[in-house]
Design a protein around this nucleic acid. Structure first.
Length: 213
DNA sequence: ACCCAGGTGGCCC
DNA sequence: GGGCCACATGGG
C-alpha cells in the first residue's frame, strides 16, 4: 500500500476528535498506576466479545468485592465468586477460568505484571498467547495498554476501518498488525491513541466505555 | 422476537 | 490452515 496513508488517517482522526484520553471508565482514572494496569489486564478479558457496558458491570462487581487485583484473584480457592461477580460480562463458563489462569500466570510465573513487562516483547506476547483464553487481541491489549509495549491491537473496529479505507484486503490478524506497525512511527502513544481514535470515530465518544460509570 | 457487543478455542475439511 | 460455530449477558 501507499506509505503514509495510515499515519495520515491517524492525524486526521486526531484533528477531528482531539486527544483520546482513555478508553477506560472514569473511575479507573482514580486508581494508582500499578492498579490501573491490572484493571486493564482484567478488563481485556471481560470485554471479549462483550459490550463495554457489561464488561464494566463485571469490573465494578469485582471492585466492590475487593477482587480487582491479580494477586487476590490468583489466591482464590475456586471460581464460584468470580463466576458470580463477572456474570454481567457473559460467557460465565469461560471468562472466570480465563481470568484465573491469567492472574495465576502473572502472580506465580512472573511474580508481577511489571516483571512480565521486563521481558522482550515477542517473548511476553508468546507467553500470553500460550494461556487458555488469551488470543492475539487480548494479548496485544495487555501488552500495549498495561505494559506499554509497542504492539498494535487489531479489533473489529480496526478491521472495519481497513475495509472502508481499503488499506488492505488481507484480514489476517498478524498481517494487519504488521501493516499498521510498519506504517506508523514506532511510538506506543501513537499506537494507543490511534486504536482509541478508531473506536471513537466509529462508535462516537458517548458510547465508549469511558462514559459508562 | 430478534440483533449486537474490544474474541477464543474447538471442531471440520 | 482457513471457515464455521458455540459461548451468555444486557440493551436497543
Amino acid at each position: 500500500m501507499k506509505s503514509g496513508k495510515i499515519y495520515k488517517t491517524y492525524l486526521e482522526l486526531y484533528r477531528k476528535h482531539g486527544d483520546p484520553v482513555s478508553l477506560w471508565p472514569q473511575w479507573c482514572a482514580k486508581e494508582k498506576d500499578a492498579a490501573l494496569r491490572e484493571i486493564i489486564a482484567i478488563g481485556a478479558i471481560m470485554t471479549q466479545r462483550t459490550s463495554w457496558r457489561n464488561a464494566n458491570l463485571a469490573l465494578k462487581n469485582l471492585k466492590k468485592e475487593n477482587l480487582l487485583s491479580l494477586n487476590k484473584i490468583a489466591a482464590l480457592a475456586d471460581l464460584k465468586k468470580l463466576t458470580e461477580l463477572t456474570k454481567p460480562a457473559g460467557f460465565y463458563q469461560t471468562k472466570p477460568k480465563r481470568l484465573f489462569i491469567l492472574a495465576s500466570f502473572i502472580v506465580k510465573e512472573c511474580k508481577s505484571l511489571k516483571n512480565l513487562g521486563k521481558e522482550n516483547l515477542e517473548t511476553a506476547r508468546n507467553k500470553l498467547l500460550d494461556l487458555y483464553g488469551i488470543g492475539p487481541e487480548t494479548a496485544d491489549t495487555i501488552l500495549l495498554y498495561a505494559l506499554d509495549k509497542p504492539t498494535f491491537v487489531i479489533d473489529e473496529y480496526t478491521k472495519r476501518l481497513v475495509k472502508r479505507m481499503r488499506f488492505s484486503d488481507d484480514f489476517n490478524y498478524d498481517n494487519l498488525k504488521q501493516l499498521f506497525e510498519e506504517n506508523l512511527p514506532k511510538d506506543i502513544t501513537v499506537f494507543q491513541k490511534l486504536h482509541a481514535l478508531i473506536i471513537i470515530e466509529q462508535k462516537g465518544k458517548k458510547h465508549s466505555l469511558m462514559e459508562v460509570v
